[in-house]
Amino acid sequence: MIDFLYEAFVAPWTWGAWMWRGVLAAALIAVSASAAGVFLYLRRMSLLTDALSHVALAGVVGAYLVTGSVGAGAMLGGAIVAGVLSSLLIGKLATHPKVRDDAAIGIVFTAVFALAVILLSTVARDVHIDVQCVLFGNVLGISDHSLLLLTLTAPMTLALIFVFFRPLVLSTFDPLHAAAVGVPVVLVSYGLMSMVSVTAAAGFEAVGAILVVAMFIIPAATAHLFARSVRGMIVVSIATAVMSAVLGMYVSVWTNVYSGGAIVVVAGLIYLLAFLFAPEHGRLRSPGPASGLRIHGALP
């Protein structure tokens, strides 16, 4: 029994540095994305993270075409520019009387992602980004460059959330009141989107776009089933995200599947458990009233 537990849980750490590096990368992404994800979730903008993560690829490719480099600065700068431009575009489109906000998201990000894929297979072939790698990631073979990028961006994200906690919360729950007491609501909103773009750009090469998007959305949704305050929600969100990252790494090692995929599946299972058994809001605890299916992707 002890031997079995040792083989399953301890041995992988002794097989080489890749386990440490993989867990570190996944945990860093988990922490920064799940903390920012709480605010996006509360603003009903979860799906914007999906869009921005796809758009970040275009930003990186664009930065390469303009500057000729794939250095950290160019990558993150390109991602921020592409992310903010796309959010502006989505916001503008959504004000058109004939275009709904969810359709606006769908139009902009699919078109930009398609452009990025085409550029990658033609003029930007030298950028050495494998599209399949962008989707699935390669957590176990993470490069020094990506790991460094993550160690820089993740604490930065957390620090920004900590410093700007009040304006973030105020403008999330009551933008009018926030504006009245002098919070620059629009600026906060674009700051949040830049944060998402940076996290996505730093993350997708390392862990894959799918894991980044999942870490924005799933832990926050899980936390909402437990939470009574925003602070509590952030804590629960980060905790479940890190838990999924570590457990998912184990699952990936045991079954020899893509780490990014395994981590997301574990996060999904944790959400399912919370959905069913959460103390106050679990379905098996208290049957809630039915409401119609409504999709919001509203931008401020």
């Binding site: 979860s46 799906l47 909402h224 995929g261 809630g288 999709i295």
Partner: peptide, 23 residues
């Protein structure tokens, strides 16, 4: 149902099912 945002539900279904596909 309460405490489930439809947009987040879409995001969860999207990422989890795609992740199962990736595995």
């Amino acid at each position: 149902g309460r405490r489930v945002r439809p947009d987040a539900a879409i995001g969860i279904a999207l990422t989890v099912s795609f992740a199962i596909g990736v595995c």
